[in-house]
């Protein structure tokens, strides 16, 4: 028996990056905007999505995929409180979603009749940030009780997001949370990120979030027209 060496030099994340690009392109062609939602557990992903969808559903046809581990109920909650269709993804205890799992979820959801799909990722700021899901936009939710130094501790997720919501702003008087400082930390890492302070509970400033997604979907359709 002889031993032979095969050199590969292959980046492991590359395969997923490629799949994600393909998925993103397909969705764009079909006019479906996919939004990946990330946060720590309990920051308010589900609450925000419910509030947001109720503002958008008159204008856009929306679907939701829920992947947060400890929340078998999230898909049911969203469906009950918004009336839009939703599926629970089974991550098998995984700490993140990759493009392949996202594609499966979309197939289960059925996107023929949809304009906008939200993906509630696993509640964790490390692993989801490393995996491209194929989404067009990444939204990060940071809640006031978590503290204003999160962008320093988890830079990658902030670098990746086009929209950052500072949620639970209704509770800011009870916490030592410096909104100006947090805006600065985020801008250092990602100058292009849009930062909106909101309350998913009271609805404060949630209309700005709704407008953001209306605009983004519109832009996607425009780009499709000009490239055709």
């Amino acid at each position: 028996m002889q031993v032979k060496t095969i050199l590969l030099n292959k980046n492991v994340l590359e395969g997923n990056d490629r799949e994600a690009d393909i998925l993103r392109g397909e969705l764009r062609e079909r006019g479906v905007l996919l939004v990946n939602v990330m946060s720590s557990p309990g920051a308010g992903k589900t609450t925000t999505l419910v509030n947001l969808i109720n503002r958008l559903k008159g204008e856009l046809r929306i679907g939701v995929m829920e992947a947060d581990i400890d929340s078998d109920v999230d898909a049911v909650t969203v469906a009950r409180r918004t009336g839009v269709k939703s599926v629970q993804l089974h991550t098998g205890g995984m700490c993140h979603l990759d493009a392949g799992m996202t594609r499966q979820g979309l197939e289960e959801l059925g996107i023929e009749d949809l304009d906008l799909v939200f993906l509630e990722n696993v509640g964790n700021l490390v692993c989801p940030a490393e995996y491209d899901t194929g989404a067009h936009l990444d939204m990060m939710i940071l809640s006031v009780p978590e503290g204003d130094d999160k962008p320093l501790k988890y830079p990658l997720v902030f670098q990746k997001c086009s929209l950052v919501l500072i949620n639970k702003i209704d509770a800011i008087d009870y916490f030592d949370f410096d909104l100006q400082a947090v805006r600065g930390y985020i801008a250092d890492r990602n100058p292009k990120a849009v930062v909106l302070a909101v309350s998913a509970k009271t609805g404060e400033n949630m209309d700005s979030v709704a407008d953001y997604f209306k605009t983004k979907r519109g832009e996607m359709l425009c780009q499709n027209k000009t490239t055709k």
Binding site: Q2, V3, L7, L8, N9, N11
Partner: peptide, 14 residues
């Protein structure tokens, strides 16, 4: 930040 498969050694039947 890398995660790279550098290479493999394999048995070749002689």
């Amino acid at each position: 930040n890398e995660v790279t498969i550098k290479g493999i050694s394999v048995a070749e039947p002689t």
